[in-house]
Amino acid sequence: MVRGLVWFALFGAASVALYGVNDRIVWDVCRRERRSYPPAWTLSPYWQWRTIAGGWYADARRAGLLLPKAAATAAILITSIGSVVTGILDAMPG
């Protein structure tokens, strides 16, 4: 139970870090393309598609945030996979 809460807290922290990095990337793209910064960009289909598209890491590089973006993405993956693996190991007999 406690392990599950720890993984949940780590996943939450990684998610907040990823959101923060993505927010800075959106701000930089808006500044570079002379767009107005949308405060609710997470609800916009345009920004949802743009963050999913392969060019998002290029935008992160242009913003100088490639390393934080890669680290935040890795943290999300590690916490996701780690929680599943520890759950499987806990369920194994012996």
Score class of each variant (00 low, 15 high):
residue 90 D to C: 08
residue 90 D to L: 12
residue 29 V to P: 00
residue 75 A to V: 07
residue 67 L to T: 12
residue 8 F to K: 14
residue 93 P to E: 11
residue 51 T to L: 14
residue 90 D to N: 12
residue 49 W to T: 11
residue 54 G to H: 14
residue 57 Y to G: 03
residue 83 S to Q: 10
residue 16 V to K: 04
residue 37 Y to V: 11
residue 15 S to V: 00
residue 54 G to W: 15
residue 40 A to T: 07
residue 49 W to C: 05
residue 11 F to D: 08
residue 80 S to H: 09
residue 42 T to P: 00
residue 14 A to M: 03
residue 12 G to A: 06
residue 46 Y to Q: 11
residue 16 V to D: 05
residue 84 V to N: 00
residue 71 A to V: 09
residue 33 E to K: 06
residue 87 G to W: 13
residue 13 A to C: 10
residue 52 I to R: 14
residue 41 W to H: 05
residue 17 A to G: 07
residue 36 S to I: 07
residue 24 R to W: 05
residue 89 L to C: 10
residue 46 Y to T: 08
residue 32 R to M: 02
residue 88 I to M: 11
residue 37 Y to D: 08
residue 7 W to T: 06
residue 51 T to V: 14
residue 38 P to G: 07
residue 41 W to I: 02
residue 9 A to P: 08
residue 62 R to N: 11
residue 42 T to F: 07
residue 91 A to L: 14
residue 45 P to Y: 06
residue 49 W to H: 12
residue 30 C to N: 02
residue 5 L to V: 00
residue 79 T to V: 07
residue 69 K to Y: 15
residue 73 T to W: 10
residue 38 P to I: 01
residue 24 R to Q: 15
residue 34 R to N: 13
residue 9 A to T: 14
residue 19 Y to Q: 04
residue 61 R to L: 06
residue 48 Q to H: 11
residue 9 A to M: 14
residue 51 T to A: 13
residue 51 T to P: 02
residue 48 Q to G: 10
residue 75 A to K: 10
residue 71 A to W: 03
residue 68 P to Q: 07
residue 50 R to H: 12
residue 66 L to C: 05
residue 54 G to F: 12
residue 21 V to W: 15
residue 29 V to Q: 07
residue 71 A to S: 11
residue 17 A to Y: 03
residue 33 E to H: 02
residue 65 L to A: 06
residue 45 P to D: 04
residue 10 L to P: 06
residue 60 A to E: 01
residue 78 I to K: 01
residue 41 W to A: 01
residue 85 V to C: 02
residue 63 A to C: 04
residue 5 L to K: 05
residue 31 R to P: 00
residue 8 F to L: 15
residue 59 D to F: 05
residue 74 A to I: 07
residue 24 R to D: 13
residue 78 I to R: 05
residue 73 T to G: 13
residue 9 A to L: 15
residue 27 W to F: 03
residue 9 A to R: 10
residue 10 L to G: 13
residue 71 A to R: 08
residue 3 R to K: 07
residue 65 L to Y: 04
residue 30 C to D: 02
residue 13 A to D: 05
residue 10 L to C: 15
residue 54 G to Q: 10
residue 87 G to E: 06
residue 7 W to P: 01
residue 69 K to F: 15
residue 32 R to H: 02
residue 19 Y to C: 06
residue 28 D to Y: 08
residue 26 V to D: 00
residue 14 A to P: 05
residue 32 R to A: 11
residue 11 F to P: 00
residue 36 S to T: 12
residue 87 G to H: 09
residue 14 A to Y: 00
residue 18 L to E: 07
residue 57 Y to C: 06
residue 66 L to W: 11
residue 23 D to K: 12
residue 28 D to V: 00
residue 22 N to M: 13
residue 80 S to D: 04
residue 19 Y to E: 10
residue 35 R to H: 05
residue 76 I to S: 03
residue 25 I to L: 02
residue 81 I to N: 02
residue 32 R to L: 03
residue 54 G to N: 09
residue 62 R to V: 00
residue 73 T to N: 11
residue 26 V to E: 01
residue 88 I to A: 13
residue 30 C to Y: 04
residue 33 E to T: 01
